[in-house]
């Protein structure tokens, strides 16, 4: 959201304040599966649902990387998707936070010896927040996203 505001108003002191406020209050998420088992992806959906509802932190899951502030990644990166992942990472405007979610993204987990896996994620792109678990519970996802928002606020300064 704040990228749109900056485009309209230009850079300045007030804009900096708006920037910081908006980023804290409405970080938009772009979610990408890099070849995991879908367990994490459906837990993200569950975290959006009424019981957990991470939209109360202003988070929205968006369809385009260009609208996003937080890049939420699941899965052990496979060889075919690696270049697409880097493309998507470059398309997200600065400042951005990368959250690695699930054992696969953290350490490639159970797929460590599989021939077509070239993760873990932090070998390929820089990662700010890690959410462990196979799959992590929605509570853990919310905790990770809140930590991501803190990192984002520091990056804006």
């Amino acid at each position: 959201m704040f990228h749109a505001i900056v485009d309209c108003v230009g850079d300045g002191l007030i804009v900096d304040k708006i920037k910081k406020y908006c980023l804290k209050k409405s970080p938009w998420i772009f979610h990408f599966c890099t070849g995991g088992c879908n367990g994490c992806d459906i837990e993200i959906l569950a975290a959006m649902s009424p019981k957990y509802d991470f939209e109360r932190f202003g988070c929205l899951v968006k369809g385009s990387p260009r609208h996003a502030d937080i890049f939420l990644i699941t899965g052990p990166v496979n060889k075919k998707i690696k270049s697409r992942l880097v493309n998507l990472y470059n398309q997200i405007p600065e400042p951005k936070v990368v959250i690695a979610m699930g054992s696969c993204a953290l350490s490639t987990g159970i797929f460590q010896k599989a021939y077509n896996v070239c993760g873990p994620l932090d070998k390929i792109i820089p990662v700010d927040v890690y959410i462990p678990g196979c799959p992590p519970k929605p509570e853990a996802i919310i905790d990770g996203i809140v930590k991501g928002i803190e990192v984002l606020a520091k990056k804006v300064k």
Binding site: C33, G35, P76, N78, K80, I81, R84, F111, K113, A114, Y115, N116, V117
Partner: peptide, 14 residues
């Protein structure tokens, strides 16, 4: 397809 391929059948053999 192939964006999700990890090589599970091969890994199972080991």
């Amino acid at each position: 397809v192939g964006y999700n391929h990890k090589g599970i059948e091969r890994t199972l053999e080991e």
